[in-house]
Structures are given as C-alpha cells and as structure tokens.
Design a protein around this nucleic acid. Structure first.
Lengths: 244, 244
DNA sequence: CGTTAGTTTGATGGTCCTCAAGCACTGTGG
DNA sequence: CCACAGTGCTTGAGGACCATCAAACTAACG
C-alpha cells in the first residue's frame, strides 16, 4: 500500500499505463462528485437515458437485465475500482440496470466530462479502454460458463474468478473472501434456479472444496477447485504496463 | 450508397462521429495491409500473443473459446465493418480463437499503429470505443439468451439479431438473409447440441415462423418471431452522432 | 411474536443431451 | 461412370440434469 490516497481505479489503471501528472489530475477530477447509494435500489434502470457513469470506490454492485417473463440475468458484478455504466453512456441509453448489493460509494462521471477527459488525454482513454476490455473478457468467460459448463463447474469457476478479482484489490485471498451475495444472486448470475444453487453448494461443500455461508466464501481445496472449474486466470492478469 | 469507396468500418463509425479529413486519413491508413484468409483455418488461436487486430471487409468470422473437455462456445460473429481481435491486442494475449466461416478479406492492424492512431486522433479512439461497446452489448444480450431463454426463444433471438446486423450493412432484410453457417455453428453459439438445434429449427419451421435451409434464412412471420424471442433491437440502434 | 428474507430438503417432471442410425449431397479417385 | 468418403442434415430412443412446486427451518427485526 504505497499510495493509500489513490482511488482504486487509479491504482488499477496505473498497472497498465504509467500516467503522467496531468493525466492523474484529469483522472482525479473525474472523482469529484462523490455519492452514496443504498442497497437494493437501482442506480440506473434499463431503458433509462441521459444518465451518468460511475466509478465505484466502495461496496458491491451487480448489473443485470430483466426479461418480460420476469426472470433476470445478472451479467457482471462491480467491485471497488470498477467502472459502471461506461457503455451505457456511450450508447446513450442503458441496456441494463445497476443494483447496489450493499450500500456503496461511487463517483459520478458525466458523459461530457468523460469525453473531455478523453480528448485531453488520449493515453488515459486507452487505459480506460483497456479496463473495459478486461471487463468484457470477464463477460465472455461468463458466457462460456453458462453455455458449456455444468452447474458445478460453473459455480466453482464463478467463485474462483470473484476471489481472484478481489485478491487483486487486496480484499480476498486463496483462503476465501467476504461476500454479501445471496443464493438468489448466484442463481441469477449462473442461469440456475435458487434451489439448484443450494444443492450445488452442498455438493461442493461435502466434497471439501469450498463453503459459501454467513456472508463468507471459504476455499478448502483451492487446487482441486481450479481443476474442477478448469479455471485459467490468464484473462484477468496484467503482466505489466503496455504503454511506457 | 453515396460513398461506395468508404470501407464498411468507416461507414459504421461515421454514423457515430462526424470524422474530419485528418481522422478519415488516419482511418484509411489503418486499412493498408489487406489480406485474405481461407475458410476454416484459425486466423488467431487462443493463447497466442503478439498478433494483430483486423478490420473485416468481406466474409464472416466467428470468435470462440475451446475448453479442455473438447466443447466449444462461439462468443460472437463478425460481419463486414466489424473489428476483430481489438481486445486481444490491448490485453496482449488472445483469450479466444478466430475462425473464418468462409474465405474472408480483412485489413491487418498492428497494435502500434492502432495506439498511434489513438494518440493522434482522440475522437477516432472514442468512435472505436463506441463500436466496441456496441459489440459488447451484443455479447451481453447473448449471455442473457443462454442464461434465461429456452432453446426456441434463443434461436429466434439469434436469427433476428443477425438479420438486423446484416440489414444495417445492406445485406439482409425482413425477408431474410444469406447465411453460411451450419447447424453445428448454431449449436456452439447457443449452447445446445447439434441434434437439438435441428429439432428447434424444425419447430420454428412448422410453426411458419422462419426457415433455415440451403445457406439461407427466410423469415415467414417476422412479427410473431419478434414476439416469441422478446426481441428488442434497442441495443443495436444508433439514432445519430453523439459527437459533433 | 408474527413477518420477512434467506436457506434447506424432498418429489416430480420437462427440457435438452447422448447415443445411434440413416439420408442427401459433394467431391475424389479408380 | 461408379464406389466411397466426408460433411451436414434428420429422426428416434433413453436418460441426465436441472426446473418447478411444496414445505419446513433459521435468523433478524420491529
């Protein structure tokens, strides 16, 4: 923790691009409008337009789509340092909703501010594009999981990915992590019923692999879980700055 | 067709940003290294690093991931005007493979050229980010389909989306479109078995909704199909330039 | 102490997979 | 010209995986 005053996003981007003083200043200015949101009440709902984007600094959010038949599909989770609604701003109309899982803290970023920042600092734009690319890689991996993994591997993969993301920002490890999600969240994420989620969790627990209980995920046999899920964290890794 | 000499990508981006002469020149320079690829042989395979990105000008490509158990999941298709491998370049290692469905023509874009272009023309960078966002919106919709739609609705939705994309570049309509995909492609796209794909296609055909036969998709009852799939093309639309 | 949100378990059945086999079409070589 | 292989499409039978329905249980909370 060399630089405790940097925002999580700044830390994340700094791993990709060595940002200049000017660029850091522009990024800092994007963080000015700080807001908090209570758990459970959508920050943005699908179809809404002319809304802002946010940079999440504390708490968990999920982005999801609702269908006419009442089911919902959670597409992704955002944890501190993640952008939220970036695509919606560029497309001008949100194609999903964002729901805080717990009370969160976020910086509001107006579309105009974002576009100005991009115009002033192209390298910052590239860095943010990189972050967006990494997020998309996670969505792709999620897609593969739902399409081609059975429920057990899907669950294992999801928990491992989440653990890795949190470990990167220092709030998780190979031992486990604190997790505010319910089994309904898992069901809507993995394309399963809540009942089946419960059964799968029991199987994984009884095999001594992982426990999901009391707002905490505990890995009992990390290696075996990685093998079961065929988990390859390459798509999450950043091996060093691309731009100098 | 005012400007037949523009590349499909240029046409697509021009709908988003009114590009200056300089920006058009930079974009044009990205198209210099033209190449062709034969059908069926991967252009890029997963795990490969230090490869280029491509701008597709003719033909169809699919991007997919292979799993250790031998199954594959097609993530997306690229049609003329689409970028290909953009994310892989930024992350420096490809997380999927790209396979030409038919013989294709594409412009090779080196990572350095792309980054230089971004540095020279920030607005072009924003435009390309917009295109990437639209692609991601399609992946998200794909995810929702696999997670929360049954096989029939999933198939209907996929065919409608494909039709809409092709209609935007002038090679498809509400009547239908030419389609080089096999039922195996559909299976790997939709997370189904090829056998079940065949049965679903038969159902849709027997209900008088759509026919998939002889390299051609024919819509018989567009409205009913839209209703069955709960298809809402909002995520594909572009209602006008965001930047002036 | 009733209510609500979340978890757990059982029973039953449907969607979709797997295995298996046959058919149509195309291109290739004897 | 025809045998044959290869690719893709089609259909049937049986079964696995997971959804749905139902109900009991726990913990938190006013």
């Amino acid at each position: 923790m060399k630089s405790v005053e940097l925002s999580p996003l700044t830390r994340k981007l700094s791993a990709f691009v060595a940002l200049s003083k000017d660029e850091l200043a522009v990024l800092d200015r994007l963080h000015q409008r700080r807001r908090t949101f209570v758990a459970g009440r959508d920050m943005v709902h699908q179809g809404q337009s002319a809304h802002a984007a946010y940079i999440l600094s504390a708490g968990w959010v999920c982005s999801y789509k609702l269908q006419a038949n009442g089911t919902r599909q959670i597409v992704d989770f955002q944890v501190p340092g993640d952008f939220l609604g970036l695509r919606s701003v560029l497309l001008r109309t949100s194609d999903h909703s964002f729901e805080p899982i717990v009370e969160i803290e976020a910086a509001e970023v107006l579309a105009s501010d974002l576009l100005n920042a991009f115009a002033q600092t192209p390298r910052l734009a590239t860095a943010i594009l990189w972050a967006a690319s990494r997020d998309e890689a996670m969505v792709v991996e999620h897609l593969v999981g739902i399409g081609r993994r059975d429920a057990e591997a899907r669950m294992a993969h999801f928990l491992l990915e989440l653990g890795s993301r949190l470990a990167l920002v220092g709030i998780g490890s190979r031992e486990g992590f604190d997790c505010p999600l319910t089994q309904y969240h898992l069901a809507d994420t993995l394309g399963l019923s809540a009942v089946h989620v419960n059964r799968v969790l029991r199987q994984l627990r009884e095999q001594g692999l992982v426990t999901f209980r009391d707002d905490r995920v505990t890995f009992h046999d990390f290696g075996a879980l990685v093998e079961l899920a065929e988990f390859d964290p390459a798509y999450l890794d950043q091996t060093g700055p691309l731009l100098k």
